[in-house]
Simulated assay, not measured.
Amino acid sequence: MKIFEPLSNASLFAGKRWRSAMSAGREEESELWRYLREQFSFISELGQAYQFEDYLQGIPSTPPPYVSAALDSRQEAASRQAMALARKALEEAPGPDQAKHALILINLLNFLADTGQTADFEDFFTHRLDYAPLAMASFATREEAEIWLKGLAEPPSPARILIGDEYYLAWYSREDGSRGVSRDFTIEPYIEELTARGIPPNTPSFKTREEAEAWLVHHPASPFSFLAIAGEHYFAVHHKRLKRHTLHPVARSLEEWEEEKKTAARQSAQ
């Protein structure tokens, strides 16, 4: 996945400047650097890295940098301000590496504009704390997810998906054609943190899952909520893009997360 190295480096480049501007009290500039940095999170979580790699092939490599015409109609938008900041960073880059990072940020803005995703990204950026971690597709079973993955000539990768009530990571390597799905412990840290603060004493209680799901249709979690089903606590997660909720049994989720952390610690030690 060659595209991930320049994307990651550009994200680090923006992150350093975000922290520098923030520590210097330049709030507006720091927010724009955060905007540029979050582009990486957006396309990564939606599995669009290879699409971006292909997009770069059609961008002129000679100066001045290409700027999408789709941005012209968004003069007041953060994307226009971010573009001005990224172009300034390109012009003032002290070396070729920094220039490459700035150019990636510029072309991420262009990619989002040319693919009609700027408004979606700005919603993601502005309301990220109001949304659950993104998942781009939902499947009832792992078999369904694997059939979907195998049926695509070039799947989105890596991309979070939902299988039943769990997060999984769907991945594909353009270099060797391999692909697969693996469990992704995305929501468990949230459950751990919020449970540690204490489960609210007056959580909604239901006899069956069907009753809970019917109630959530009219009372969506924002984006998380505790409830009880047949006396057991669950963590409800609202997936706005997919128009559904997942329900995570708190006790089992915490046990699985502890096991996952122990496994990761053993692998790290080895």
Rank of each mutant, 00 (worst) to 15 (best):
S30Y: 10
L129N: 11
L247V: 05
K261R: 15
A135D: 01
L32Q: 04
A84S: 10
P96Y: 10
T208L: 06
G47P: 10
L71T: 09
A145C: 10
P60F: 08
E143G: 00
G25R: 13
A251W: 02
H101F: 13
L46M: 13
L152W: 03
L103F: 10
M22Q: 14
I104G: 00
L12C: 08
P156N: 04
R80L: 04
P94T: 04
W148M: 10
E27Y: 08
S20A: 15
A214T: 14
A14Y: 04
T208Y: 05
Q270E: 13
E143D: 13
E259P: 00
Y190E: 06
R26I: 03
E31I: 00
M83G: 00
R241K: 09
E27L: 11
Y131G: 00
E27I: 14
D120Y: 12
L32I: 09
I104S: 01
T208K: 12
V250Y: 08
S41E: 07
L134R: 13
I161V: 14
A77M: 08
E28F: 09
Q75E: 14
I163S: 01
A77W: 09
Y168H: 14
R74P: 00
L242G: 06
A14D: 06
S73W: 06
S79E: 09
A78Q: 06
H219K: 11
V67A: 10
Q98E: 15
P65Y: 04
S79I: 15
S41D: 12
S138T: 11
A78L: 15
A24G: 07
E45C: 01
S138H: 14
H239A: 04
Q48K: 14
A69R: 13
P156M: 07
G198I: 11
F224T: 08
M83I: 01
K2V: 12
E213W: 03
A230M: 01
E256W: 09
F125S: 01
A132I: 09
R19W: 06
L71S: 05
H127M: 05
R266G: 02
S225A: 15
P156Q: 08
L134F: 11
E5P: 02
P201N: 13
E166K: 14
I106D: 01
